[in-house]
Simulated scan of single mutants.
Amino acid sequence: MRVGMIGTGAISHKHAQAYKNIGYRITVCTDVFPEAGQRFAQQYGCEFVPTYEEVCSHPDVDYVDVCTFPDFRLQPIEIAAKNGKAIQVQKPISTNVETARKMIETAKAGGVVLGVVSQHRFDDSTIFVKKAIEDGRLGKILQADAYVKWWRSEAYYSRSIKGSWAVEGGGALINQAVHQVDVLGYLVGGVAELYGQWQLAARHKIESEDVINALLKYKSGATGVIQASTAFWPGYSERIEIHGTKGTCIFTGDKLTTWDVDGDSGDPAPVEKEVMSGSSDPMAIPLTPFERQFLDFGNAVKNNTTPLVSGEEGLKALEIVEGVYQSCRSGLPVKF
């Protein structure tokens, strides 16, 4: 597959490394800072072009990979759809639900595949637990929680756009914990009702939340908690805890670290203790899940099928995030 890259910041290098490992080729790139884009092009052996429109219409591109801030999503999709190019965007799908829905509609109208990078669905832990839940090994799910108690430095938030509502859509929940929101929805199902509380700029000089909590009631009847922060020094590995009538599983970082299931007789759980986490370093994350997601997306592009993390799936996670923010602002529960 030939990939056109829009945005050449930190995460784009993870993408580039993953593409190299799976045999995909970045053919063209662009960046609003030309010098950064030209350095990226030189490092990865691709062509630099001045505008995103040129990437989205380039003849040597099978799909476009958008690694920009989340306020820039609909614009490249509109050009890519006109040119019949599939497009994949970095999480979150957008800063708001309204724009995300327009993105999905635009891609459908243009007949192109749209995907959202949410690579933790491709962790060994998630793959195993997804099947285990479907097979009934945990029994009826009673509680499903996510804890993302991370740390980000003052330097991380030194630019005014970081943690801003207009450019990033918010703070710790939409930018850091959106991965865990997605995994909870993928494993446990949709949310029926939630209630949120936050602290704006509790530790950092930002517009949005760096501490937030939400109580959830899932459509299945299970309950849950989401806690997200970038204010807890030195940062702790994120956890997902799922409790069923037959037992409990716990994810820590990218690994399944606990599998306590009464009378379990299925395939052995891939329990590990060495984990990788972005708890204090955003780039301390493994490549394998990216590689798996990119292969999945590439196959969807080739066959014009739906990738595992489609635009609709990315929208589901954003709807929960936006619901929590709405509850925090109003002081009232939000029902779906």
Rank of each mutant, 00 (worst) to 15 (best):
P270D: 04
R292P: 00
A300T: 00
Q227K: 12
A228E: 06
W233N: 13
F294Y: 07
G298A: 15
F251C: 10
T288D: 14
K273L: 15
T230F: 14
C249A: 12
I206Q: 03
K255H: 11
E241N: 11
R292D: 05
G266M: 12
K246S: 02
F232M: 14
P289H: 00
A269Q: 03
Q293K: 05
N299R: 09
K217E: 11
D260I: 08
P282C: 02
T258P: 00
F297S: 01
V211D: 01
T306H: 11
M276L: 15
S220C: 12
A284C: 10
A284K: 14
I226T: 11
G266N: 11
G278S: 15
T258W: 01
D254L: 02
F297H: 02
E209Q: 11
V271E: 05
F232D: 10
V275K: 11
G298P: 05
D254N: 10
G235S: 10
G235A: 10
D264W: 03
K246A: 07
P307A: 02
T305N: 06
P282H: 05
T258V: 15
F290I: 08
V271C: 05
W259E: 01
A214M: 14
C249Y: 08
Q227V: 07
G278R: 11
T252Q: 09
S277Q: 13
P286A: 14
Y218M: 06
P282M: 03
T257R: 06
I212K: 02
F232V: 13
C249L: 09
S279D: 10
T258M: 15
G244A: 02
E274S: 09
I242N: 03
A231H: 01
E241P: 00
E274D: 11
